[in-house]
């Protein structure tokens, strides 16, 4: 079985398991809704400030709600020793990781694409001005979120205090990517295209994705076996 075929099989397995129960995606979307609701009390949603805050607000929602999906990614395999079986399976750890990351990417992205219109309605923001570029930034930011979330889900699956350690480790690492995604989203939601001022952030986001994907694929074998 080739590398990408193996990754695809793992991805389909994860998606099928998730679609059967829908527990992670439901929890994640419900959580996103609750945060969106809570933010309306934090500041005046009618004011012009909403646009300026939109990038930060959206990505905080995505990062927190996405973590609910990512947390479960490897923990789900613990009952019945599924994780041991997966590690022992004749596929490389990198393929296993890539498959899980892709499945998580699809789930988190689905949650985001549903929350985005809800955000637009609640906060009266015309977010679709730069739809193509916004979707690109969304995909890049979500990939950063899923790569880091998936590798740290694997790293912390067996240690005690998992619930505490996972956010302690992932959010600081994610800061550069979240910062870039927030700045870009704010610009795009306000209707400005990506210009010379903001292109540094885009470069940074792409660089983050490439660097962490490469390092994760390289190290995941050590994490799963060691």
């Amino acid at each position: 079985m080739g590398f990408f075929h193996a990754a695809l099989v793992i991805m389909m397995k994860d998606l099928r398991a998730e679609l059967r129960t829908k527990e992670a995606i439901n929890a994640s979307f419900a959580f996103a809704l609750v945060i969106l609701l809570l933010f309306s009390f934090a500041f005046d949603p009618e004011a012009d400030t909403t646009k300026a805050l939109s990038g930060g607000l959206l990505w905080i929602v995505f990062a927190f709600a996405g973590t609910l999906v990512l947390n479960r990614s490897f923990a789900r395999e613990l009952p019945n020793d599924c994780l041991d079986a997966l590690v022992a399976a004749p596929i490389s750890g990198a393929a296993l990781f890539l498959g899980k990351a892709l499945a998580n990417f699809v789930l988190v992205m689905a949650m985001e694409l549903v929350s985005l219109p809800v955000f637009g309605i609640f906060y009266n923001v015309h977010w679709a001005n730069q739809l193509g570029e916004l979707l690109m930034v969304l995909a890049l930011g979500t990939w950063a979120l899923t790569v880091i979330g998936t590798i740290f889900s694997a790293l912390t699956v067996n240690i005690r205090l998992r619930e505490v350690m996972l956010p302690m480790l992932t959010y600081p690492i994610l800061v550069p990517a979240l910062m870039a995604a927030m700045q870009l989203t704010m610009q795009l939601v306000s209707g400005n295209a990506i210009g010379p001022e903001t292109v540094t952030w885009l470069k940074m986001l792409i660089g983050f994705d490439v660097a962490y994907t490469a390092v994760s694929l390289f190290l995941v074998e050590t994490v799963l076996v060691g």
């Binding site: 240690i159 005690r160 660097a211 962490y212 390092v215 050590t222 994490v223």
Partner: peptide, 28 residues
């Protein structure tokens, strides 16, 4: 966080491996 991660893992080989992986991530 690296130092906290070390405190959270008991088994020495696993602690060293995971801490090393995290250190590489943090260095970026």
């Amino acid at each position: 966080g690296y130092l906290m991660l070390r405190k959270a893992i008991e088994e020495p080989t696993q602690r060293a491996t995971f801490a090393a992986v995290f250190s590489i991530f943090a260095f970026i």
